[in-house]
Design a protein around this nucleic acid. Sequence first.
DNA 1: CGATCATTCAAGAGAGTTCTTGAATGTTAG
DNA 2: CTAACATTCAAGAACTCTCTTGAATGATCG
Lengths: 232, 232
Amino acid sequence: MNDRQAAIGSLRLSAKLDLFAAFAEIGRALGNPHRLDLLEHLAQGERSVEALATKGGLTVANASQHLQALRRAGLVIGERRGKQIVYRLAGSDVLDLTAALRIVGERHTDAVRTVIEDYFQSRDSLDAVEFAALEQMMADGLVTLLDVRPSDEFADGHVAGAVNIPLAELGSRLDQISPDVQVVAYCRGPWCVLAFEAVAFLREQGREARRLDGGLPEWRRAGLPVEAGSPR
Amino acid sequence: MNDRQAAIGSLRLSAKLDLFAAFAEIGRALGNPHRLDLLEHLAQGERSVEALATKGGLTVANASQHLQALRRAGLVIGERRGKQIVYRLAGSDVLDLTAALRIVGERHTDAVRTVIEDYFQSRDSLDAVEFAALEQMMADGLVTLLDVRPSDEFADGHVAGAVNIPLAELGSRLDQISPDVQVVAYCRGPWCVLAFEAVAFLREQGREARRLDGGLPEWRRAGLPVEAGSPR
DNA sequence: CGATCATTCAAGAGAGTTCTTGAATGTTAG
DNA sequence: CTAACATTCAAGAACTCTCTTGAATGATCG
């Protein structure tokens, strides 16, 4: 029996480390800002390596390497489609994982609060509109729903009834937003900074503006209406 | 307006990278097998640095460094209590995060399946007993619930009605387990290898044994009865 | 079938992580 | 106040990660 006991002991240690090493690989994949950015873009829909590189501000070779790290961790899947390789999230549980990461970050990490407060003086801009509240406001005609992502992403799919004004054009197209109703802005996800900035800018301009609590992936996942088509 | 536009642009980039860097720090904290092990131990209850170092097979200085990485990421909290510093999980959302990590690992990472299959030839041992099923079996008197953690952890808190036989003593204390009823084994959590090995060993010995789907932290979190006291 | 395009591979410089060792800090007990 | 104790800090060696550059692969198009 002692041989078996010894075997159990040594086996335990290596099996445990191997198992934890596999989980740690997923953790490491989440441990880089660019890779989190890539995951956010992939949460919008599938994308080619080149598209992801452009959106993420990376060289193609570098983006490819990050995507391979994500693939090894089982977070994304790459599939050849014609000349390109198209990546997508490996499953909806990946969204759950990033959401869990976000919740821990929001609650416990001073860094996150500090970053947000550094850029947006008033805490009000943190106060987000829930999906259900937005639907009510839209039904009542009390709101302009503003999608501040770039036009190509809007065209690829957006919340039904949203108007697209990319953040960069917000200043010059302010006259296209009725001053009489509140604005609710959204972008790629709950951490997407575009919406924070749009809200900050609109408030500076004297508009009543708030952020939507979540972006397109969360909206889609809640089974709420999404439409696609060319931007205005 | 153009100044403001430019400001928005540059701000956007740095704010985004800062935010994602904060989240990535949490990811990195999850990106090391020893730190995942420490989190599993902390999920049992609060522990001093020395206790964690011993359980994790680390030097005290090294354990301290890992714990500080976890603390910077907002995953654990350290509090001075007398001469010692006692660490605990920063919140229940940390359990949610590790659970999300586990789910992605189980579904998508070949490495996890490979590791498990390498050590446990029969897939049956993966087939875990749910909490509700266990409660029914216990009510019917059809089961021996076996806690295979070391005695000190058992004494610190365990599932009500469980019997403690640490894995290392399982061979020599086999006669203390009735051969007439099924055995359900559990340990520290869903990835804890002790229970896997106990099940493998018991099956080799011709016993009917299965793993509980979760460990003490999950049981406690489900609001199910926990008792503390000295081991037999 | 050769040209072109998208992606991956390979190698290397620079930065960050991990673990070890020994000293420093801060708290308690006598 | 001093000794003992638990933890943290600091520095350095070995290793891993990240990004860049240029070449290699593999698919499509004419």
